[in-house]
């Protein structure tokens, strides 16, 4: 176990929404649909996300939560309906403002840690301070001294931290996470959750977190959307002060409520 929890405890003041720069973009989703052949995965989603909000999207496997994320970051095209990010054209995704972090780190094995982060500069890669910003972001995730190494020598948690700094380096206004911590061990997950919360608090981007871990959703999000059968079955605001403690009574109560919602319609032998 070589991943240490090395993130200092979070100051409450820095996490107050009013204290952060409003850099995030609002997202409006209207009647969004997606089918694969005859299989209708999303059946007309309808919701709004405020600028800088931290949204968690939960649901059972195959409920369409990852599909929704792929639509919103422009990796797939919707079958019907529309979404709008900030003032952009409907269904348009500005690649430099919207970044996505996947479950796998997806680092280029033949590029150094620093070069991988620089990939994240996107259209800004020719800017003169690109190198310095990449170094700053690496320092932010605590991997500055590993900058010259190959990704293959890093641990799973360290690789995800490199992927996070690659996603952050262009200062995106929307950051989407597709189960980014799903492949990590429990302790690394907790330290990564704290890191995500911190960078979100610092930079104020709109965060979309797709996860199957309900506790993770309640710990991190301002709002939890539960998706079932291609529709939103629950839209729950989480008004707990930050940082929230995993396993505290408040968190557990909300977690229980979401889980009950998820199991309400479950038939025997239905879990995927």
């Amino acid at each position: 176990m070589n991943t240490r929890v090395e993130i200092p405890s979070i100051q409450r003041e820095t996490l107050k929404p009013a204290a952060r720069p409003i850099a995030g973009l609002p997202i409006q989703v209207e009647g969004l649909k997606k089918s694969f052949g005859d299989n209708e995965v999303l059946r007309g989603l309808e919701f709004e996300i405020n600028a800088g909000e931290f949204i968690a999207i939960v649901g059972r496997s195959g409920c369409g939560k990852s599909t929704l994320l792929r639509l919103l970051v422009g990796l797939d095209a919707a079958t019907g309906g529309s979404f709008r990010i900030g003032d952009d054209e409907p269904n348009a995704v500005d690649r430099d403002q919207v970044r996505v972090m996947f479950q796998e780190p997806r680092l280029l094995p033949w590029a150094s840690v620093l070069a991988n982060v620089e990939v994240g500069l996107g259209a800004q890669r020719r800017s003169p301070d690109g190198r310095r910003r990449a170094l700053d972001t690496l320092q932010r995730v605590g991997l500055l001294e590993r900058r010259a190494e190959w990704p293959s020598v890093l641990s799973g948690g360290q690789k995800q931290r490199v992927a996070l700094s690659r996603a952050l380096v262009s200062r995106p206004r929307v950051l989407a996470f597709d189960e980014p911590l799903g492949a990590l061990d429990a302790l690394t997950r907790i330290s990564m959750q704290r890191l995500l919360e911190q960078v979100w608090a610092d930079q104020g981007f709109t965060a979309l977190l797709v996860t199957h871990d309900v506790a993770e959703a309640v710990t991190l999000a301002d709002r939890v959307l539960v998706i079932e059968d291609g529709r939103i079955s629950l839209d729950l605001r989480i008004d707990l002060p930050r940082p929230r403690e995993r396993g505290s009574a408040d968190v557990a109560a909300l977690e229980g409520r979401i889980l009950r919602e998820l199991f309400k319609n479950a038939r025997a032998g239905d879990d995927a």
Binding site: V73, G74, L75, R95, D96, R99, V100, F102, E104, R106, L108, A111, V119, G120, G122, A123, R166
Partner: peptide, 20 residues
Amino acid sequence: QLVEMGHTYGMTPAELFWRV
């Protein structure tokens, strides 16, 4: 997955070829 990553970070076809 790396090719998809390259797309999301706005790599041009030439960059995708040389870097991925």
